[in-house]
Amino acid sequence: MLNLLSGFVEELRRGGLPVSLTEHLDAAEAVHYIPIEDREALKYALGATLVKSSSHWHAFETTFDIYFARGLGSGEDGDGAETGGDSESDRPAGDAQGQPGGGGAMDQMTPEELAAMLYQALLDGNQSLMRVVARGAVSRYAGIEKGRPVGGTYYLYRTLRNLELDRVLERLVAQARAARPDGQDLSALDERLLGDEYRGRVDQMRKAVEDEIRRRLVEDRGAEALAKSVRKPLPEDLDVMHATRDELATLQRALQPLSRKLAVRLARRRRHRHRGPLDFRATVRRSLSYGGVPVEPRFRHPRPAKPEIMVIADISG
């Protein structure tokens, strides 16, 4: 366990997260208090001790999934058992564990059956059924080749293209519209809410497929090798020219609080130096040399308010 943890911390550092020795020690101690079979608890324990910034959480999560998906085993087994029970399929729990990409009742399913199950899973928001569908879909569509040093993006693309989630989404919304008993149209508000609901489920489905592919790749090539291929830059070191849409959204979120932080800091510094208010005219004049961009703000000299003195003199005598 300690070796696994060390490897995990190494990988986080290679990914650019600042993990100090103290934090590593804390994590090692924290693991003592967490029941080892509880994967979620382990994740939060490691997260609380190792990750000290919310923008790093995503990178942590990805690495965690790679290192502890199979490493501890039991979490995955638990999932399998639960899945089997819920979907009333009689598949043994450890099935997918042993043979990546092969075997299992799931693979004999026709695409139509798979599509029907997917529809049902999304309609009910049934998480375990989603995982079953993800397993089946990956076996059928992804065509994972063993030993190829890839990060799985291509497999993900292949699987999702065949699942046609967008079309399923449309069908779901149409179905909801048709299901109105009195035949009248859904109000705009209801429609919007339903749309968001289903979109959330489709995202869950996408994530299930992603997890499944990642799990198989880890089985194939081991955690360390895979971690290397899926390593992504943190939001702060992102290459803007080559960023995907999701990455740009993350970037946007990371940037949003920055302006507030900057404002706070500037205000603080200004108060600190006892400078006066902004001198607008001087700033504009100064900005001419920068093409009209107010690079260097000018401030008025502080003018402490003069105390008013009143003299009351009694000159009657």
Binding site: Y33, I34, E40, A41, Y44, A45, A48, T49
Partner: peptide, 9 residues
């Protein structure tokens, strides 16, 4: 889960 876990730790 996360909040409870951290409080416990």
């Amino acid at each position: 889960e996360g909040i409870a876990g951290v409080v416990y730790l």
